[in-house]
Write a protein that binds this DNA or RNA. Structure first.
Lengths: 117, 117
DNA sequence: TATAGCACTATACTCTAGTATAGTACTTAC
DNA sequence: GTAAGTACTATACTAGAGTATAGTGCTATA
């Protein structure tokens, strides 16, 4: 039985906040699929709807709005008929790549570990 | 208006699965606070309960069970009076450090960006 | 004998994320 | 004039995450 060292809760929550911010931005069932779909290409609403299995229009619309608010995705409307709207990943959105890769690498290892137990 | 290149949905979902696994393990309101609290010290149930503001016993118990199942945390019972139970981060749990740091760094930048818009 | 501390569990509730389904506004092509 | 395509919005529902509150079993100390 080891000694229990007290943590400084102030310093701790200071570190926690950005972590939880980041996590919240990626959280939910659909944010990652959308971001990954946009990581390499520009896409329209209907493209995303087709490419992301089982997502509803409502969710897609809602999540895209969220991502736009956080400046990860840019929305461009073209004055065509019918209207077309393009969604692009911003440079800033691309800065998430490292985070997503870190998650992916760890997730891969985790799959192996849990499968082989 | 750019060309739209089709993505291979098979290859895409293959990459997505581990990312979502990782995200699921960290998801929810309390997983990260618990992991961060255990990152440096061994802690008992009551220590964690005190250190993590506003967490209920029910949630703490539930989330610790989850983390234990995923081999991120180890639970050790000591035959004292009253019983004491220690929670330790496993070596494997520590392997999440890089992911958490990546999240933290990005979250920090994001805070600055959003605040200064 | 009563009380207090530890590590939970039980029950009931609320609230939010996500689903299901349908409908809108616009215009061009038939 | 009506059908079809695009990018949504509205409404209603469901399920699961999280909250609030109370109670359990153990025993050492007062």
């Amino acid at each position: 039985m080891k000694k229990h060292i007290k943590h400084d809760p102030q310093a701790c929550s200071k570190k926690m906040l950005p972590i939880q911010d980041a996590l919240e931005i990626l959280s939910g069932k659909w944010k990652l699929p959308i971001l990954v779909a946009l990581m390499f290409d520009v896409k329209r609403f209907s493209d995303l709807s087709k490419e992301i299995p089982r997502i509803t229009d409502r969710m897609l619309s809602k999540e895209l709005k969220d991502l736009e608010m956080n400046k990860l995705v840019k929305r461009t409307v073209y004055d065509t008929f019918p209207v077309t709207v393009e969604y692009t990943m911003t440079e800033y959105g691309r800065s998430l790549k490292k985070v997503i890769e870190a998650l992916g690498e760890w997730g891969e290892k985790h799959r192996e570990k849990i499968m082989s137990e």
